[in-house]
């Protein structure tokens, strides 16, 4: 059952490959807000060179995200597509890479899971806060 109210045709969900098991709330919320005439929802992740905390590397990273997209499509009845962004220094440039990806897909709503602000977030913003203050897209943060 989809919620009534505004629908979004081009949505994106940034995900941490090491925490794909925690993606369900964002997937469900995005599916509920998806416009049936819209484009597939973009599942996007940023990775750096070398081994990742997910234990995956190279093409296995793409495959893991694609598997999640396939599973989500089956469960929520909504099409998903994937984008793996490879950055030399994801800690520093990951947010900008996401914003470029959103622009490339003309995204109108970003749905993302976010943590409650921690001590370090007062010094440098977490991904959600960075996007909220730098991105032109609408942003839905889920906690």
């Amino acid at each position: 059952m989809r919620a009534s109210g505004p629908r979004y045709a081009r949505m994106a969900i940034p995900l941490d490959l090491a925490e794909l098991s925690l993606a369900d709330p964002a997937l469900a919320q995005a599916a509920a807000l998806w416009d049936p005439a819209g484009a597939p929802i973009v599942l996007v992740t940023v990775v750096g060179p070398g081994p990742h905390a997910s234990g995956l590397s190279g093409e296995a990273q793409d495959a893991a995200l694609q598997a999640l997209a396939d599973d989500a499509r089956a469960r929520f009845g909504v099409p998903f597509q994937v984008a793996v962004l490879r950055e030399h220094d994801p800690a520093a440039t990951g947010d900008e890479a996401l914003e470029r990806c959103f622009a490339a897909h003309d995204i109108d709503l970003v749905v993302m899971r976010s943590h409650a602000p921690a001590f370090s977030d007062h010094w440098l913003p977490a991904h959600g806060r960075w996007l909220a203050t730098h991105s032109a897209r609408s942003l839905l943060l889920l906690r």
């Binding site: 940023v46 990775v47 750096g48 060179p49 070398g50 081994p51 990742h52 905390a53 220094d89 994801p90 800690a91 520093a92 990951g94 370090s120 010094w123 440098l124 977490a126």
Partner: peptide, 21 residues
């Protein structure tokens, strides 16, 4: 800073930038 951060984060590259700062 980049390298010491990586060393003290167990080789993890995707660490919060705060650590490098």
């Amino acid at each position: 800073s980049l390298i010491v951060d990586t060393m003290t984060a167990g080789g993890k590259i995707e660490t919060p930038l705060t650590q490098r700062v």
